[in-house]
Computed example of a mutant assay.
Amino acid sequence: MCIAVFLWQSHPLYPFLLFLNRDEYLNRATEALRWWQDGETLGGRDLVGGGTWLGCNRHGRIAFLTNFRETSSIPDAKSRGDLPLRYLQSQKSPAEFAEEIEKEASLYNGFNLVVAHVFSKSMFYVTNRPLSQQQLVTLVSPGIHVLSNANLDSPWPKCLRLRDGFNQLLTQHPGGEFPVKTMVEEVMTDTVKDQEPDLPHVFPPDTEYHLSSIFVDVPRPAGRYGTRSISALTIKSHGQVCFYERHLEPGGGSWKELTQHFVIQNQTST
């Protein structure tokens, strides 16, 4: 399912700050954070579909994805995890790529996709499940945004809790270094759940109750399901990138940490 909070172009030190929990079956084959074979793309890999839920590259491109909560699906739909990867490995601007995906959006099950280029200050949100009369492609404004399994900035209680926790830490550290691990430990692992009246009422109440926390952990008939990884992606104004991941070992073993640092190349508006 996944949930993410991000700050875009509204901080003196960080043009971009992102925290994202990936929720998935613990037995789904997954590769941890690493550089891909092209040497340009950095992110985890879903070994079933072959794509990713969050990635960046050496040239300032960023892409991340969440699934849309819905009760029906397309049997032969294209893999949603391909969408971030296609953008990261393309030469298109965020606007051009968003326009391309808009034309084929019906081929996928419900998704939310954010694509950005940090130095062109360009970020677009694409969904194939828009609100009534809303366009599929939206320019993302500067500020704090939360994305879960409904439209961008939908007021689900878990999204509001995540926004509040993120904003509180920003207030405590105005203009300076942001405490990444504090955010991960204090906010992204929050297990507070909602009562029935506050649930989105898409799935049965018992199912939604267990999915209503920021950090998810629930047994299901197909296996244990929950937060597989917590990612933090920070980009400073001079192009220094820090990509941190805390992930569960395959099968739900111990938690491991990985961090990659690099400086964005060709810091131009592309």
Rank of each mutant, 00 (worst) to 15 (best):
147 L>Q: 09
143 G>S: 12
76 D>N: 13
94 P>V: 02
202 V>W: 06
106 S>F: 09
144 I>R: 01
163 R>A: 06
40 E>T: 09
207 T>R: 10
64 F>S: 06
247 H>P: 00
25 Y>W: 07
260 Q>H: 14
90 S>A: 12
205 P>Q: 13
137 V>Q: 09
227 T>P: 07
222 A>Q: 12
117 H>F: 10
8 W>V: 01
124 F>Y: 11
31 E>L: 14
105 A>Y: 08
4 A>C: 13
177 E>P: 03
150 A>H: 02
158 K>A: 02
105 A>E: 04
179 P>T: 11
48 V>E: 15
269 S>V: 15
65 L>I: 06
187 V>S: 02
107 L>Y: 08
119 F>I: 06
244 Y>G: 01
21 N>G: 06
220 R>E: 08
164 D>T: 04
89 Q>S: 14
168 Q>R: 12
197 P>H: 15
24 E>P: 03
95 A>Y: 09
142 P>Y: 11
152 L>T: 07
98 A>E: 04
184 V>P: 03
46 D>T: 07
148 S>T: 12
214 I>Y: 02
46 D>P: 05
104 E>R: 14
49 G>F: 06
248 L>N: 01
138 T>D: 01
61 R>K: 15
77 A>T: 12
15 P>M: 06
128 N>I: 03
19 F>L: 07
64 F>E: 05
160 L>Q: 12
87 Y>D: 03
54 L>W: 09
77 A>D: 08
197 P>Y: 10
74 I>C: 00
21 N>C: 09
265 Q>G: 11
27 N>L: 08
211 L>W: 03
262 F>A: 07
48 V>G: 08
253 G>Q: 12
70 E>H: 13
72 S>W: 09
258 L>Y: 01
221 P>R: 09
105 A>V: 05
